[in-house]
């Protein structure tokens, strides 16, 4: 009898252990060449069950009014989690948005979200597309009601949170778990920087030096953004999007937009907040010759960036070393 109890206790211990071990093994990994992540893991510790629930929710069309649009609709993995080929995204009923869908990667280092930085906590980010009439046009209450009535979500929430009770916090934190795990740190650039055996070609190296000289102030490595809001002289678009001003109401912020990361550029065209440039040549041509002297233009761009066609090509060669193919092909991030 005693033996049996002992064995049962052992099994129980082992079972509880193994679940913890699995969860421990599955965690956020800080890339060696990145600064410390800023996401608040202390209030949302990564676990496998929560991550997998978040992934399922990310690809869940029930988040939209007529169950047609998921997060993954406009954030496609093979396109670096953007809406490749769309200047602005079309959401529910093919309604058009006003801005280019930004890539979802390395969000654990972001201090604000959206082109205007209107959201300051990743946990609150999903609310915006869900209730936006041109994106998902749904209410949070309805989304939760649909998930509660679903045959599998209550048990998935139970596995993740220990309760079948589906609420805003658990829903949003699951989505955050999936999104913060979307770390892109396996580009050739990263392998060079971490001395993992890769080396730049002569052209890439020349491009890197040009980058450090002309671009690194705003597109600061290794994340390739300094998280600031700037007016880069592309001029006012047809919809007169005032960018950061809409959030701060500070006139100095008119037409400023978040400096985007340069990682995975090959997968995320078109470029700028309204997707006006179809390719990198167009972007570099803008900086070389097209910067408009508008009010609020970033002082660093007053004279544009002098780049010969040869220098532009070197820069593009370097920028391509920021592509991370393993990121856009990682099956862990794909719809299951």
């Amino acid at each position: 009898m005693k033996k049996a109890i002992l064995i049962i206790t052992c099994i129980a211990l082992l079972a509880s252990c193994s679940k913890e071990v699995v969860d421990k093994m599955f965690s956020f990994t800080q890339p060696a060449n990145f600064p410390v992540a800023t996401y608040h893991f202390n209030t949302n510790e990564i676990t496998k069950a929560k991550f997998e629930l978040g992934r399922k929710l990310f690809y869940e069309p029930r988040l939209s009014r007529d169950n047609t649009v998921s997060c993954g609709t406009c954030h496609i993995q093979s396109a670096g989690f953007t809406h490749h080929g769309h200047d602005v995204s079309h959401g529910i009923d093919d309604r058009l948005g006003s801005r280019n869908s930004p890539p979802i990667m390395n969000l654990a280092w972001r201090t604000s979200f959206f082109w205007d930085g209107g959201v300051f906590d990743l946990d609150l980010q999903p609310v915006a597309p869900i209730i936006n009439p041109v994106e998902m046009d749904e209410t949070m209450d309805n989304v939760l009601a649909k998930l509660r009535a679903h045959p599998t979500y209550p048990s998935l929430f139970e596995q993740a949170f220990g309760t079948k009770d589906i609420n805003e916090e658990r829903f949003l934190k699951s989505l955050s778990q999936f999104m913060v795990m979307l770390v892109s740190d396996q580009s050739k650039y990263d392998q060079v920087k971490r001395h993992e055996g890769a080396t730049f070609t002569a052209s890439e190296q020349a491009g890197y030096e040009l980058f450090l000289q002309h671009c690194n102030t705003c597109h600061r490595e290794p994340l390739f953004t300094d998280e600031s809001f700037r007016n880069n002289g592309i001029g006012i678009g047809p919809n007169n999007d005032e960018g950061r001003y809409l959030v701060t109401l500070n006139p100095a912020d008119r037409y400023k937009f978040k400096v985007p990361s340069l990682r995975n550029l090959s997968y995320t065209a078109p470029y700028m907040h309204d997707g006006r440039f179809l390719n990198l040549q167009g972007v570099l041509e803008h900086y070389a010759n097209g910067v408009k002297e508008v009010a609020g233009l970033d002082p660093l761009l007053e004279h544009g960036i002098p780049l010969t066609p040869a220098a532009q090509q070197q820069l593009i060669d370097f920028l391509k070393t920021l592509n991370d193919e393993s990121f856009i092909k990682n099956p862990l991030f794909a719809e299951q």
Binding site: T43, D116, G118, L124, V127, T139, M140, N167, E168
Partner: peptide, 28 residues
């Protein structure tokens, strides 16, 4: 208004939609 979502339950949960919601999703 800046606390973790776990401290915004009940009437503070961003639960509504565009019509009756009391929360700006685009500008937290």
């Amino acid at each position: 208004s800046t606390m973790d979502i776990s401290r915004r339950t009940g009437v503070l949960a961003p639960g509504g939609g565009m019509d009756d919601g009391m929360y700006w999703g685009w500008n937290s």
